[in-house]
Nucleic acid binder design. Sequence first.
DNA 1: AGCAGTATTGCATTTCAATTTCATTATACT
DNA 2: AGTATAATGAAATTGAAATGCAATACTGCT
Lengths: 149, 149
Amino acid sequence: MANKINAINLKDRFHKLGYKYTEQRQMVVDVLFEHPVLHLSSEDICEYFKQKNINIGQSTVYRTLILLEKMQIVRSINLDDGFTRYELLNHDEEHAHHHLICSKCGSIIDIKKDLLKDLEKQIFKDYHFKVQDHCLKFYGECDNCKDKN
Amino acid sequence: MANKINAINLKDRFHKLGYKYTEQRQMVVDVLFEHPVLHLSSEDICEYFKQKNINIGQSTVYRTLILLEKMQIVRSINLDDGFTRYELLNHDEEHAHHHLICSKCGSIIDIKKDLLKDLEKQIFKDYHFKVQDHCLKFYGECDNCKDKN
DNA sequence: AGCAGTATTGCATTTCAATTTCATTATACT
DNA sequence: AGTATAATGAAATTGAAATGCAATACTGCT
Ligand SMILES: [Mn+2]
Ligand SMILES: [Mn+2]
Ligand SMILES: [Zn+2]
Ligand SMILES: [Zn+2]
């Protein structure tokens, strides 16, 4: 648990890298840690602040997310809805985890098992291509929506 | 080979669906069939026409690609460069094929083997999620770039 | 062939998420 | 506390995607 990232010990991470840990950045980090299961967009986070009457500029939210990605605290993902979305980067996962996207209701399910190790070995054999990361999305019908037919 | 799509017999496909097979649409289709290995964007195709002094409006190209996708002649893909790209839909492939994306030189390699059948069965067992299609991209270093270190 | 009805074109404009500018403000270090 | 530097945020800009609409082209019918 020593090196586990959480909202508490981030201050040091920022300072070690020469960044200031401002109130605004804290707030953005807090929202992400409070909703670990969601895939929030910059707009989602702005909307959340607006509802709580917290004044943080959209460009600050936007730039904070870029910074958090550079700091390897979040990862940006594309779930095909026109928004860049963000999720906390889990350092237990060697590679990006996968997503099930229900075409009916739009719900998103995380798949944390890697599942691709063998394929990547195969690709190295066949194409001499050294895989560093991947992006895998499955489109279909979720358990809930299957009943509603 | 009876039902194989090519640039020749598309006229009938358009007419059967109530669409007109105009010169502009033919030209767009031709560009796609002439570059089966590329992943062209709307802008790429406009640029190609401009260089050949062919006057076709960008909105026509854009709308033609949308139509071709609806007609199941092309598929749109996102290769993380900010452009929607298109490739001919091969009806031998049950699902979308995969892409290797070289982080160094940006080259794109098609992987036509499906490779995901077993995983999709596993996902149905574990999550009761019925996979209909998928999107798989691998990021890494291609064979060419590996030497240049 | 000519006509009428409908689909398509393409210029111009709009949309909208993402990005940048820049004057003001906050932070960290001494 | 003071100073240097980084961050903020309102406003403006960017650029790919999408749309409105008047002009044009295609198709089926006479
Ligand atoms: Mn996720
Ligand atoms: Mn391809
Ligand atoms: Zn669903
Ligand atoms: Zn390469």
